[in-house]
Every structure is written in C-alpha cells, then in structure tokens.
Design a protein around this nucleic acid. Sequence first.
DNA 1: CTCATTTATACCCTATAAGGTATAAATAAA
DNA 2: TTTATTTATACCTTATAGGGTATAAATGAG
Lengths: 77, 77
Amino acid sequence: MKTRLATFVKDKRKQAAMNQEDLSFAAGVGLRFVRDLEQGKPTLRMDKVNQVLNLFGYELGPVAQNRDEESQSSVSE
Amino acid sequence: MKTRLATFVKDKRKQAAMNQEDLSFAAGVGLRFVRDLEQGKPTLRMDKVNQVLNLFGYELGPVAQNRDEESQSSVSE
DNA sequence: CTCATTTATACCCTATAAGGTATAAATAAA
DNA sequence: TTTATTTATACCTTATAGGGTATAAATGAG
C-alpha cells in the first residue's frame, strides 16, 4: 500500500533529483530500507524513517488521520 | 528526552483518563511499549506507534521540523 | 508518616527489522 | 527492438525492539 509517508518520501526524493541509492547514502540508511519505506512497509523503525525525513526538513509526528499535511497538491475530488 | 510524540500521547491519555495499562490494552500493545513511547524512545516501530495513535484519531506522518502540529485544540492560523 | 496507585528501570527471551547480495522487473533512452 | 538505469523481490544473517516479569521510584490519598 502506498501510504502518505511513502508517497511523501518518494516525491521529495524525485524533487531532489536523487535515486534511491543516493537517498540511502545521504540518509545513512540501507538501500533496502529506502525501498521498504517507499513501498509503504508499516513496521519500520521511527529513528530510521526520521533519518530520511530530516534530509527534507521533516520528521515523524502525530497527524490527524484525515488531514493532508501540507504535502502540496494531490487529493483530487 | 520528551519528544513531541511522547508528550502528545501522554497528554491524550490523560485527557482520556486512562493509565498506561488501560492504554496498552486498548491499543493492543505491551505495557512496556507504552512506557517506552511516553519516555520518547526513538527506535519504536511505526506500526505499534500507530496502534496507539489510532485510538485518538491520529497517525504518524511527516511534519515540518519546527511546526507544532496541533496538540489538541485547533489549527490557529 | 503509611498505604495504594501509577510510572520507570532492569533482566531476559523471542520475533523480526535492517541491510547486504542477487535477481527480476520495470522504466527509459538508443 | 536492445541496452542501461532504476526500482522491486527474495534469501539470509545479525542486531535489537517488543513484551513479560519483577522491582523500584514516584505520585497521591489518608
């Protein structure tokens, strides 16, 4: 499943013109981890996810279940 | 360290008049996990954290590092 | 103060996330 | 089409999170 988080990371990565390998290196996590993250694996460790999000000035936090945290566009309806 | 997430959960739990044991049972996670969560342990698994947040209508998501995601009331601004 | 409740720490075991390697499947450019 | 690049899956090992139990330290009521 493509979660909000997965989409967010993939999107930010594309914006930064990086491939998954670049990102994994920059974040200091394994390439496999970046892949799991972008595939929406739900059991990831928060600290590892944060290592990635920090690159983009973000971090994991509680968000209301329906709100669309200022990603940018999407939700067409 | 008391992270934003730790504070959020503890606060929501208090609001719901539950102790940690109640919360662990309601969320289907171990009591130890609730404790680690409220103590700000950084290496928690996202799925377990989400089991707790879901009780309050929240979930983990990317938030900008300095913003103070509405703790309880509303988004003022 | 004592006693009850709640929360925090420590020890231990089991299940599994992280990550490496290899491979396969897309995606894109020629 | 072929070939290169990127992304996805599978297998395996190692490190560790989750969680149970026990204990200790707070917190609070009397």
